[in-house]
Write a protein that binds this DNA or RNA. Structure first.
Length: 299
RNA sequence: GCCGUGGUAGCUCAGGUAGCAGAGCGCUUCUCUGAAAAAGAAGAGGUGGCCGGCGCACAUCCGGCCCACGGCA
């Protein structure tokens, strides 16, 4: 049996609650697919499930890194596959839950991510070059080495251009020949938590207020003290805004308003990402979810 | 009532010597293979408070009115 249930949806749609309910009913274990809940100490701001919520359900890929440690899709893919296989081996049902679309895609479609890791020094060098001569200069350099890349990557997106050049330079092979999907590893059922637009917005706003009440400012203060504000992990909604408040750059009220709108924008980006995936079974309530899963398990 | 300042996109406001109406934010749609809560792209919004005048042509000049804010009475 290599079944895998995926629970996805925009932030604040209710994935956590649903996944735990499902894990209880179907003898499952939860594997988180969330790029920020990975970090220890980032609890309130990432809406990480609490011990109490989790109850007896095992949760994986939560709290595996400190905020000063980098983590990437490629690592996630390896970690997740290993854990999912282990859960299956123990005859339990793995439930991959999260809103990080790329992480889910990497696992479900077995993306063959170029083996070349991030090379900070090279990136810095290219970044400097882009700053000096313009991004297009770097882009031209890339398509000289790999003309096909011009069709694949967004010439206006610094990160895409830089990564493509990084891969091409370090592997000495055209970047465009190095992006493939592998064969699917799992028999997957994707469940999308559907929430009406206005309702989702409302939930997001309420949740931001709740985070503040629960002590987000203290959480961020503690982490910034411990690790310094300049961490990749803190480039996350809630953290970067509160850091501005802590550094006396902005009043709290303004920062809270920004959190709300930024979370909303994030939810919309997630929706755009998920929208084109026709394999997602969008469910409106728990009953529907059970029906979809029962059918999947029966086959 | 008088004096002053203002009324331009959903919001905050530029510009304004008459010659295609602007920005930021928001909004809509989209992209995505070792940073993805990241990084990017495209687009839709205007009877320039209202009425009249002068002009080939007015957001812009002139007159009147309305509204908002501040000051004086």
């Amino acid at each position: 049996m290599n079944r895998l249930i995926v629970v996805l949806g925009p932030t604040a749609s209710g994935k956590t609650e649903l996944s735990i309910k499902l894990a209880k009913k179907y003898n499952g274990e939860v594997v988180s697919a969330d790029s920020r809940q990975i970090y220890r100490g980032m609890d309130i701001g990432t809406a990480k499930p609490t011990k109490k919520e989790m109850g007896t359900i095992p949760h994986w890929i939560l709290d595996i890194k400190n905020p000063n440690e980098p983590y990437t899709v490629a690592e996630f893919k390896n970690d997740a596959i290993k854990i999912i296989r282990d859960i299956q081996k123990r005859n339990k049902l793995p439930i991959l839950v999260g809103g990080t679309g790329l992480y889910i895609k990497a696992v479900v479609e077995n993306l063959d991510i170029p083996r070349i890791g991030a090379n900070p020094l090279l990136r810095q060098k290219i970044e400097k070059e882009a700053k000096k001569n313009g991004l297009d200069f770097v882009f031209q350099k890339l398509i000289k080495l790999d003309p096909e890349a011009a069709y694949i990557i967004d010439s206006k997106n610094p990160r895409r251009v830089i990564r493509a050049l990084e891969i091409t330079l370090l592997t000495k092979k055209p970047f465009s020949q190095q992006r493939r999907s592998g064969k699917p590893l799992f028999d997957v059922l994707k469940i999308g938590v559907s929430t009406a637009k206005e309702r989702l917005k409302e939930k997001i706003y309420l949740r931001v207020d709740k985070m503040i009440k629960e002590g987000l400012v203290k959480e961020v203060e503690y982490l910034v003290n411990k690790y310094g504000a300049d961490q990749q992990a803190f480039d996350a909604i809630g953290y970067r805004e509160i850091i501005k408040y802590i550094n006396n750059k902005k009043p709290l009220g303004q920062v809270i308003a920004e959190m709300k709108i930024n979370t909303w924008h994030y939810a919309k980006r997630q929706t755009t990402w998920f929208k084109k995936d026709k394999r997602i079974n969008w469910v409106r309530n728990y009953k529907e979810t059970e029906r979809v899963i029962d059918k999947f398990i029966m086959k």
